[in-house]
Amino acid sequence: MTKDRIDRRFAALAGEDRAAFVAYIMAGDPDAATALEIMRGLPAAGADIIELGFPFSDPMAEGPTIQRASQRALAGKMTTKGVLATVRAFRETDQDTPVILMGYLNPLVNYGFEAFAGDAAEAGADGLIVVDCPPEEADPLVDALDAANLSLIRLATPTTDDARLGVVVRRTSGFVYYVSVAGVTGVLEADADAVAPAVARVRAASGLPVAVGFGIKTPERAAAVARVADAAVVGSALIDELESHLSSNKNVTSAVLSKAEELANAVRFARSQKA
């Protein structure tokens, strides 16, 4: 499993000539049970891959939406062990959807890299994205993840030039996450025209599928990205939906899942309905 699950998923999607829809949610947001319920519903709503955020007190690359999600999760006492328990519970109902954990380094330093890699693999996670761990600092973490057959998914950004790209894709596997805007999550919108050449460049340098995220809010934008990239990642837009239903007391899970379905359909049919 693990790394292989990511590779299998991308191979299958390539066979269908469509991009993956990657849904990001935060473990423990708005509470552990609801987040698990949403996560379990995501594959049926069309999510091909799930990014499960693990909360951190100081999420330096996040915009206000994911900052608040992190704060809600921490207020509900979500822990790193709790995040892994969420993954384990998800795997009871789904063996095929890759799960990528995404967050910041300090909770992992605290947990211990080897212990974390072992527990994450055992829980059924497939990869890890650590926002504040650039390649120069990543070797100890990659050693631990390699031993557990987990991928460390790397980030490439608009500031990553060709020389740097070689550093970024060293010791990586699964896919590369292209951050389509210089900025925090969920604030600026990706420029689909600028994304296409960047994706081609990252794909050529890494030989891996390229997922695009950080600036996708609408089905239209998701579709535009899905035409040129191997995956489109949406996070803040789902969490905005969650948040707007928290205050109105409606069913949060079904609201988030129907938003996910809308975005997933846009991605699924993007290439067959080329404008």
Partner: peptide, 20 residues
């Protein structure tokens, strides 16, 4: 050269900031 004082220091920033 990696900005280390023993085990401390380093450069733990988002990739967007690394080139800067």
């Amino acid at each position: 050269s990696a900005g280390r004082f023993g085990e401390f220091g380093g450069r733990y920033v988002a990739e967007t900031l690394m080139p800067l």
